[in-house]
């Protein structure tokens, strides 16, 4: 892989190299999910597509939001908005670990100088009703990826099993580029006429969202949004499978899933505002999980979910 002999010079170059690498390995290059999510896993290209029997291979960047992690752009590693790189292959290929290590080499990590380790880390998403076994991958003691074999999603056993890789892009890039503060990281090529740092792109938005997330977001409105999204999700799924207008069998798993994800994100915002008590927390998580489960139930009845008429 001659083109990778040089070290990447910017955040975007690392993303581009990952894109190139996984495209070469046969993944469909998807684009981000156009909803607010907490992690790349919530993209329907992962959650829904990991269900059912049909083979699947996709990779994409997913902007992710974690309102509680907002630090007004001051903390060297913590952001309320960040990027994850996500790969999902179903069924998991036998040499997924080697494929993954190849991607680290592609972004300029020299396997002969670094200490790469697979350290037990089982993954569970209470809101998705999903779990899997795998590792966090350490490079010289730093967690650079999550590696998971999905066992269950939305309460359904995964058959076949998908292999999921999640890279925390900022952290990984900071390590590869040798940067200590995320805001100092070159976003594009530092030699380019308009060299931009990560801070040039995101410092202000971190401040704006931190303030909004923590102090301004109207919790009454958010609570209403939650109820509405929940109701809409259930309404969508309660429709008859055959569309009365076209006469076709159209189960609206994806529109329902959008509403489930909306509820999930609103819950995260409410959590960041500190208006959810410990006991209520469990109840909210349970409500989102119930929606996720219904969406999964619906998806497996669709063609993409492996349904054969």
């Amino acid at each position: 892989m001659a083109q990778y002999d040089s070290k990447p010079r910017s955040f975007q170059e690392i993303i581009l190299r990952l894109q190139t690498y996984w495209a070469e390995k046969g993944c469909a290059m998807m684009q981000p999910y156009d909803m607010e999510v907490g992690a790349g896993t919530f993209h329907p290209a992962t959650t829904l597509r990991s269900l059912g029997s049909k083979p699947w291979a996709a990779a994409y960047v997913q902007p992710s939001r974690r309102p509680t992690d907002g630090r007004y752009g001051e903390n060297p590693n913590r952001l309320q908005h960040y990027y994850q790189y996500q790969v999902l292959i179903k069924p998991s290929p036998p040499h997924l670990q080697e494929l993954y290590l190849g991607s680290l080499a592609a972004i300029g990590i020299d396997m002969d100088l670094h200490d790469i380790r697979f350290v037990e880390d089982d993954w569970e998403s209470p809101t998705l009703g999903a779990w899997g076994l795998g590792w966090e991958v350490w490079c010289d003691g730093m967690e650079v990826s999550q590696f998971t074999y999905f066992q269950q999603v939305g309460g359904h056993d995964c058959h076949p099993v998908s292999g999921e890789l999640t890279y925390g892009l900022e952290r990984l890039a900071m390590y590869v580029l040798g940067v200590d503060h995320v805001m100092d990281m070159p976003f594009n090529d530092p030699q380019s006429p308009t060299a931009l740092s990560y801070g040039d792109v995101f410092k202000q938005t971190e401040q704006e969202y931190s303030r909004w997330n923590f102090d301004v977001a109207n919790t009454d409105v958010l609570l209403k949004h939650f109820e509405e999204a929940e109701a809409e999700c259930e309404t969508i799924l309660a429709q008859e499978h055959v569309d009365p207008k076209t006469g076709k069998r159209i189960i609206m798993a994806h529109p329902a899933y959008d509403q489930c994800i909306k509820a999930s994100h609103v819950f995260n915002l409410l959590d960041a505002r500190g208006v959810i008590s410990v006991t209520e927390r469990q109840a909210y998580i349970g409500r989102v999980r119930a929606l996720a489960k219904q969406c999964a139930d619906a998806f497996v009845l669709t063609e993409a979910g492996g349904y054969a008429a």
Binding site: P91, S92, P93, P94, D122, G132, L133, Y149, Q151, C158, H159, P160, V161, G163
Partner: peptide
């Protein structure tokens, strides 16, 4: 304690 399936097996 905990075990898993992988691939299509």
């Amino acid at each position: 304690q905990k075990s898993m399936r992988w691939g299509a097996g």
